[in-house]
Design a protein around this nucleic acid. Structure first.
Lengths: 146, 146
DNA sequence: CTATAAGTGTTGGTGCCACCAACATCGCAT
DNA sequence: ATGCGATGTTGGTGGCACCAACACTTATAG
C-alpha cells in the first residue's frame, strides 16, 4: 500500500471515518449473505427490543429518516419479516410488528454481526476493545444528547 | 431523543459508523466555509507532503478511486489551487502540482480541521483522546496492511 | 524483438447512507 | 373551531466508495 499523508493519519476525524468505511464493508458483506442491509437490522432490532411501533418512532430510535423508513419497511414486509397494519387507535399511524420469521432473521444477523465485531477489532486485546468501546460510546452520547 | 436499541449501542461497528456520521458532518460544515469537500483536502494534503504526483498516485495515497480523483482534480484546477500538466517523461501520466493558492487553502483547511477535532472529542480528557487515537490507529492500520 | 501484461486517465454508472421539501391527512391543545 | 404538530409518502439531492470498460502507454516475459 502507498503511504498516507500524516496530516490525515493523525486526525481522529480521519481515523473514525476511514475505519467506518471498513466497518461498513464488513457489515455489508456479512448482511449480504442474509439478503439484508443496515437499515433492516436497525429496524428489526428496535422492534424486538421495544415491541411494535410506528414508523416515525422507528425512525427516531434507529436514527433513520422517516422517508427511508418507508422504503426499508416496504422491503421488510416483502421479505415477510415484519407486518404493517394501520394503527386502530390512530388514523394516520401504522403499527409495524415483528413476525416469527423476523425474529429468526434477527438472530441470524446477530450472529453475523458478532463475527464482524471480532474481525473489526482483531488486533486489539479484550481490554483494549473494552476501552475503545467505552470511549466511543462517551463521544457518541455527547453528540446525540444536545 | 429517543432511546436506541441496546443491540446497536453495544456494538463497536455501530459506534464507529454512527460517530463517523457526526464527524463527517462536522468536517463537511467546516469545509463548506472554504468551499471545499473532503476529497479536496486529502489531495492537497498529499501534494503538500509528498510533492507533485500523478493522479493514480494521489488516489492510492488518499484512498480515493482513480475516477473520483479525476473529478476532484478538475474542481481543484478550476479553483486554481492545483495545476495539471502532462508528465514529460510519460505519455499518459499527468503531473499534479500544488499552487501557492493551494498552499494557502490547505492552511485554512488545517485550521478548520483542528477546530473540528476539538469539537469532535470534546467530552474526552487529553489522555483519553490520545488513547482513543492510538487504538483507532492500530485497528485502521490492521485493516489496510493485508 | 515481439507478444503480453500492467499501469494511466477518463467516462459513465451503481449503491449505501443521510438528509430535505412538500403534500395530504389526522390528532390534539387552546 | 382553528390552528399546530405529528405521520406516512413521494421524490429528489449529495457525499463517499466502488466497478466496468475504453484508449492508450510503459514495462515485462518469452
Amino acid at each position: 500500500m502507498d503511504e498516507i499523508p500524516e496530516r490525515l493519519t493523525v486526525k481522529p476525524s480521519w481515523l473514525i471515518t476511514q475505519l467506518a468505511v471498513h466497518a461498513r464493508r464488513l457489515v455489508f458483506d456479512g448482511f449480504a449473505a442474509a439478503g439484508a442491509r443496515g437499515y433492516h437490522y436497525r429496524i428489526l432490532a428496535a422492534l424486538h427490543e421495544f415491541g411494535p411501533a410506528s414508523q416515525a418512532e422507528l425512525g427516531r430510535r434507529c436514527r433513520v429518516d422517516r422517508s427511508d423508513v418507508v422504503t426499508a419497511v416496504n422491503q421488510l414486509v416483502e421479505q415477510g419479516v415484519v407486518d404493517r397494519t394501520p394503527d386502530p387507535d390512530h388514523g394516520r399511524r401504522n403499527k409495524v410488528t415483528l413476525t416469527p420469521d423476523g425474529v429468526q432473521q434477527l438472530r441470524r444477523m446477530d450472529q453475523l454481526l458478532d463475527q464482524v465485531q471480532d474481525d473489526l477489532l482483531e488486533p486489539l486485546s479484550a481490554e483494549d476493545r473494552q476501552t475503545l468501546t467505552r470511549l466511543l460510546g462517551r463521544v457518541l452520547a455527547h453528540h446525540e444528547s444536545p
